[in-house]
Design a binder for these strands. Sequence first.
DNA 1: TAGTTTTTCGACCATTTTGTTAAAATATTC
DNA 2: GAATATTTTAACAAAATGGTCGAAAAACTA
Lengths: 193, 193
Amino acid sequence: MEKKESVRQEIIEAARQLFSRYGFRKTTMEDIARLTHKGKSSLYYYFKNKEEVFRAVIIHEASILRKALKEATTGISDPAEKLEKYMRVRMNTMKELINYYEAVEHEHDSHYSFVDQLRDQFDQDEAQAIRRILDEGVAQDKFQPLDTELAANTLVIAMKGLEYPLVWKGSAQNLNKRIQKIMKILFYGLLKR
Amino acid sequence: MEKKESVRQEIIEAARQLFSRYGFRKTTMEDIARLTHKGKSSLYYYFKNKEEVFRAVIIHEASILRKALKEATTGISDPAEKLEKYMRVRMNTMKELINYYEAVEHEHDSHYSFVDQLRDQFDQDEAQAIRRILDEGVAQDKFQPLDTELAANTLVIAMKGLEYPLVWKGSAQNLNKRIQKIMKILFYGLLKR
DNA sequence: TAGTTTTTCGACCATTTTGTTAAAATATTC
DNA sequence: GAATATTTTAACAAAATGGTCGAAAAACTA
């Protein structure tokens, strides 16, 4: 029963490589099979279908992102600093996950696919995480009292806004500057003077 | 009659991007059409078929490589130096063309395809170019008298030998060291003491 | 403007690729 | 060696793809 999970993991890793290089559409089950040294049909013993493989890959990546965020922010006590670090890490890590979004984003036929659902779920989690930071800031009397739920959602939307241009231009320098700008505006309106 | 050629060039450029990213197989005519903002059928007005597009791209790339080689070596008078520069530039430029070779190399069904022919042609040209450098070295009395045709062919083969591992490991550092080594051996046998 | 040539494109076809399934075959465990 | 787990084979429907053809559109010419 342990073996099956490890093979699943192998498949996920192989699929991850292929999806990130070729996108969802251009990656075939045979590609994945070849890379795992298996027959194409064998994959269906571990996953119901191609979409399931893709979903597993995305979930895996998302968990990595979550872990990276937690790790990066966990030592920081100052909420402002933590927030800035959070956004920076999140943007930079996201740069590498963009492929997946891009891969399916361009298949806008059947809307509200499972990717949209996953994205929504992730956005919700993210808003919650950010809200916790904001709450901390308010509790420590470093942020002005505010509707943290609304503010968190706003921040998520702002990050999504930054995310999209990323697909077109991978200009990390420009991105960091934009983050800085947003953070500056944000803090000067947020921090108690 | 001028316009047609410029459109051809546009198509080639678009195809170049796609082929280098996805390889020959995974790049479809519709991909190329989409990137050129044209209907798929329109492409067949400029090229007989997909293979022709591919061939045009490769020829284009080869001419770029040739130009780069000429440009890089044209100012150098010392044959030994010129030879070293030639090999270095060739290897490093080739790194970016590898995709094409890789793309079709893995379709070893119908052998002696047009890619093999093109490659042979290129090898021949290359042997000639190298031979010219060697002749220069001999004429300048800096190289020992030798069968320059044979030596040139040997060098081409040596470079091809270096080329193949490149497909698997893009370790530029390792590559440069190997070039250095070969050049060292080559020169200590070649240079007059 | 009418006619001629060049260029684009949608509809269509033949073939190949691809995702998926079911059953047979093989390996592993007990 | 029965039972279970895993892989392979074969097959097939649906989708994708390379390519053709003719007609429409655009550009050009007179």
